[in-house]
Amino acid sequence: MSKVFKQILKEHASLLGRVAATYEANFHMRQELLQEITLAVWQALAKFKGDSSIKTYILRVAHNKAITHVAYHAKQPRNDSYCEVETPEPSKAKTTDEQLDQQRQIQQMLTHIRNMPIQTRQVVTMSMEGLSYDEIADACGISSSNAGVVLNRARKTLMESIQDAQ
């Protein structure tokens, strides 16, 4: 792996982890997906021509790979070694009520996002990664106005579900 590519992957590791979390609830499957996504991004980096920001490019490749993973694994029988827990080791750091509440909200948000249609899921998460409507539209292959409509609808239901969890 070239040093430049390794540096880019390290800088975007958290972002890739969040993409994986969007598609997989199971801890082990999420790690597997994260590896697949990172590998796909690494392959694709050689073809990056600078037509968009590197972040938009990485997100586009990552979501594409994640969709392939979902289609492949949806009907695959899981091995016994794949436990069904979302996070096998809970954080050992001391948590306040406020932090617990925040973790609950995050879990609620992720559960809700994972139940969204693929395109909506992609639009919402890209927006939360700070991409503009134009960048989201370019990555998804839809119009900016369509991206805006999808995003506003999804955000409304997402906010409601998080408020319900409080």
Binding site: G17, R18, A20, A21, F27, Q31, L34, Q35, T87, M128
Partner: peptide, 9 residues
């Protein structure tokens, strides 16, 4: 969204 704990490759 940004505050979620994530796994690393």
């Amino acid at each position: 969204w940004q505050q979620q704990e994530v796994q690393k490759p």
